[in-house]
Each structure stands twice: as C-alpha cells, then as structure tokens.
Design a protein around this nucleic acid. Sequence first.
DNA 1: AAGGCCTGGAGAGGA
DNA 2: TCCAGGCCTT
Length: 698
Amino acid sequence: MTHGLNAAQSEAVRYLDGPCLVLAGAGSGKTRVITQKIAHLIEDKGFEPRHIAAVTFTNKAAKEMQERIGKLMEGKTTREGKRLPLKQLTVCTFHSLGVQILRMEAEHVGLKPQFSIMDSDDCFGLIQEQLGTTDKKLIRGVQSTISLWKNGMVDPETAIAQAANADEHQAALVYRNYVATLNAYQAVDFDDLIRLPAELFARNETVQLKWQNRLRYFLVDEYQDTNACQYQLLKLLAGGSHLRAPAFTAVGDDDQAIYGWRGATLDNLRLLQTDFPDLKVVKLEQNYRSTVRILEAANAVIANNPKLFDKKLWSEHGMGDPIAINPMNDEEHEAESVVFRLSAHKFERRAQFRDYAILYRGNHQARLFEQILRRERIPYVLSGGQSFFDKAEIKDICAYLRLIANPDDDPAFIRAITTPRRGIGNTTLEVLGTFAGQAKVSLFEAAMMGGIEAKLQPRQLEPLRVFCESMVRLADRAAKDPATVVLDDLMEGIHYEAYLYDAFDERQAQSRWTNTLEFLDWLKRKGTKPEAEAEGEATGFDNADGFGNEGKNLLELTQTVALMSMLEGREEDPDAVRLSTLHASKGLEYPHVFLVGVEEGILPHCREDEDMGDEKIEEERRLMYVGITRAQRSLHISWCKKRKRARETYSCEPSRFIGEMKLEEAPAPKDDMPAMSPKDRLGALKALLGNGGKAAQG
DNA sequence: AAGGCCTGGAGAGGA
DNA sequence: TCCAGGCCTT
C-alpha cells in the first residue's frame, strides 16, 4: 500500500494511533502523504469515504487533491467489490466546510438557511458607511483590523474594552456595528464561515457530536497557515470528545509560514503539542525538487530563524549550478538584464519558457519586467490578477441571485435595484432606507410594506414595486423550476446586455457580456447536470468544493456561488515565463528561478512608519526561503544598487538574506554585459539565435 | 467647483 | 496594474 514512499512518508501515512503532525519541508511530497493517507484509511482501515475530510485553504489546492486521490484510487473497489463512493469524500476549503455546516445548522446560530455570504467588497462598503469617509486606506485598515479580531476570536465588546488608542477604539465601535448590520442582513462574511461553526460547536455538544460522527478523520493541508478560529474549529471537530479519541493529521511547514498578516499564527503549531501531548511528529526532510546547492542556501538562510522544530532538507540530486548573485545598477538595468540572461540561459539549456519564473516581493515590481518581456516578444503569464468573481458584471448577477435567495440582503438589494438603472435613484433609496430603519425591516420588506406609499411619489413607488414583484416571482420559481429556465427569465427581465452596451464602450461591453454568458453557462451546467452523469467521470468527483452542487435548483446553487471558483475550465498552459509574487509562488516549482529585487527594504520589506520587530524579519526570511526553494535546477538572484523614487535616485543595500545564504566565495562576477545599451544586447542575442526570439504572444 | 488627464508611488491575497 | 493627488480645463 505504501509502496513508492520513503520511510518518513510511509510512517506519516500509516500512523493512526493518535493525532499526527507532519512537518513537510519544501518539495518533500506532502500532497502525496495526504492523498496516500486517505487511500490507506479507505482501503486498509475500512473507513468510508463519507467519514473523511481533507481541508485546504484554496479551491485550487482542493481540486488538485481531488484529482490526485481520484487517480490514486482509480479502479479500486470496496471490500464487497463495489465502486468506491469517492464523491462522498469531503475535500474542500475551510470556508466551504464552514458553509456546509452553517447551512445545516443555521437555526442554531440565529440565521435562516438562505443567509447571504458577503465578499470583502460588500464588507468594505458597510465599513465605509459606518466610518462616513471615502479614505480607502483607512477603511481597508479598519477592515483588516476587524478581520484580525474575528480570526483571533475577539468579540466586539472585548475589542472595545481593550482598545489601546483612539483609532482602535473607533475601529472597535465600527466592529460592533458591523456585526449587528450583518446580522440584520442575514448575512455572514468570510471570517464568520469559520468562526460561527466553531462557536456553535463550543457551546452545543449535541451538534458537535453529530458532526464528529459525520467526519471521523481529518487531514489539514498547509497547517502553518491556520488562524485561531480555524484551529478552534479543527480542535472541536477532530480533537476528540468524551466519546472519541482525536483523529487528525496536520501537514505543514513552519518555515513556510508567510501569512501572518492574514491572521495565521505559528502558535497553532506550538498549541498542537500542548493540547495533544501524545502528538506524533513526523518530519519529511528529503527534498525531491532541488539541487544540493539550492537546498544548502535555503537551509543556511532559515537557520537564522529561531527553530520551532529542527529540520534540514537534503536531496539526492547533484550539486547543480552555482547560485548567481547579480548586482544591478537600477531597476531598469535589472529588468533588461534578467530578460537577457533568461533568454541566453534558455538558449544554452534548450529549455522552454515555461521552465522559468521571475519572482518578486511586491506586485508592482512586475511592471518593468512585463514591459521588457512584451517588447522582446517573450510570452509570459502573470500569476494572480483579478479573479473572475471579482468582476463587476459577475457581481451584478450574483447580487440578483443573492437577493432571490435572501430578500433581507440589503447590499444585494441596492446593487440589483440600481444595476441596470430603473428609475430608482438615491433619493428613493434614502427614503426607503429611513423607513426600513424605523420599521426595523429589510429594504425589500419595507418596499412591500403598507405605509411606504405615503413617503414616495407614485413615480418612485411604481418601479420599486415592479422590481420587488418580479423578484418575488423569480424566487418562487427558483425553488422549483430548473435553474436554466429561471436564469434565462432573469436575464431577459433585466435587459442586462442592453445595459452593458449602453453604459460602456463597445469593447468593454463585449468583454463583459462574454464574461456574463460564460458565468451563466457555468451556472446552468452546475444546475442541470444529473447525478447519474457525474458517476462516470474519471476522478469520481464533480466539483471543486467537495460537496455535491450538481443537479440543484437555482436557490440551492446560489447559496454556494460566493465560495466557488470556476476552476473546471482547465486553465490553458502556454509555454510562457511566469511572473509571480513570492506569496503566490508557494507550493509551485520551476526549473529555473530569477529572484529579483533582493534588497534591504524590499526583501525584507520595510515600511517607513513601521518598526521591524524580530517576528516581522522572521516572516520575511521565510519568504526568502520560499523563494529559494521554488527553484529546481538554477537560481539567479539580483539586486539593484540604486532605485528611483519620485524624481531622485537613492542607493540600496543588498538584502541581509543574500549574506545569510553562505555562498562559497564566487569568482568575481564575470562581466557578461558588454559595453552596449541593453537594447543592443538583446538585439545581439537575437541575431545570435537567428530566429528573432521566437515571438509569441504574452 | 467639478471633472478629466497625467504622473508618481506602491507589501502580500484567498475564501 | 491601480489609485491618489496635482494641475489644468470648463
């Protein structure tokens, strides 16, 4: 069963006598351990798939895990010779699990089952209103403070009591209001998806035991990224009870904890040992990714952090190429030079563009590289970027869906009723809002109530009522008719396409409409695909969230949309250089990596108004560690002696992390930059290659 | 006064 | 890229 695993991996897979922590160094095969352990539980230990949960942070990770499990278990059958019900496995994100719990237990947390999920933009809007300002920096600051409070399980009253200064006090007051507002809207934010189930389990043992019985073994991916709430949830579900022993495996790497600013805390690794004294710790130290030189540099850097667990990566790969450290004159020189070196390297190694990644600390650093790559017609892909679900047109449609599912969702009401415009403006909404406030009902309810007539002109009231009535009709039908039909009627009714072409220029409108259609199409597929059809799929899974969304009516579908991503359209994989932030590169690997802008102030990053505590430096160091360990075969590090800011140039120091890599004294960097302008150099190279750089689209 | 254009500056990001 | 703030219009 555990063939093909090394000793440590195999131990991690087979250990089931108690809680287990797998410290999986970079490139040590952690996903392998999780998937094999699931297979082991099912095949060798007689677990039913429905009793196992594997929890990740991203949809992408969840999907990848499903695929790997599917492949691993392909053709396997139960002991009775029946096909394994792999679909019943719970492989999903923390948030998706939270929603699932909340929908079923809504009554216990004072929500109706059709509660809405607000994304961060909606929440931003709420906080903006309360603060009465348009200062985005301030709003975002308050928003993240509130989020950190929530994730640290600090309630508003405590936050108010403990506020250390006027700003915090103000934020805490907003926090209290914000919680109350969400409640009035019958809505939750992303943080609530974890917090509410955790609080529920903590105070209601019956419900807790019910879920403990449903999910009997837990596997947690990227455990070092969990926050206080997620730990509580995990502990309450998998940490055992008077009826059952703890049953979980947490997989993570303390050296790759880079999400402290999002509330993740390494305390969770420490806590695991104190909360579970019999915790079995397995270290995976053999790296299957990188050459010895790269791993030694990574080890040397991370050795400067205080160690929670001592861990040293090793590899059976050869020494490999020396690591190149390249000082550059300024950021333009850096971009030109990196692109030049990359092209030359690719030519020498007969490699492909997709073998290369350029990694940087801050998103804006990508700009220059994009420029040069485009100019040289080298194809590239930018990691990250705006997600499909953040696009305005998708949010518009989602607002309608949310409103159909939950008429109390005021933000959705406002967005839907004003997009497209239908003769309802701010004045009408203000009157309606005041009225609703006094009557303590939602906007929707207020619009339908008696008494509102007196406050509004007939020509204001009329479109309001028309809108609400059409929503009521749609809601009725959404609960019974197929999603396809209802969606078509909705789109027909709101003239969305006409609105797009009216409100935007041709190009914009076209692209937005295309997105809209794609989204509708995706919804319809989700809504109509019958269970039986999914049976035949190779992986045995049919969606990215681990719960069956197929064949549901629109109402049910709408309730999970906020968390989903359309990963199923397999992203095309062009032969292109990858540009990525260090954060976004975690978990990925590339044969050849260029790590750029490795200077004091950038990596480690430092903001003027902020002091660099030890913990901050340590997280930056882990970021450097993540960067180094992305590389399989070659690693090129560059830093700029000078950078431009405003209209002056200032000089930079190489990052302390470069020194920490303890590279053997390299021979004086050979000058591979002849006395030519960068442009000429690239020209010369292309002449050398004789193919004009093999143009492709970026 | 309000609005469009340009220039400069910038942690990181998923549910 | 995106956002803000300054400056130049109307």
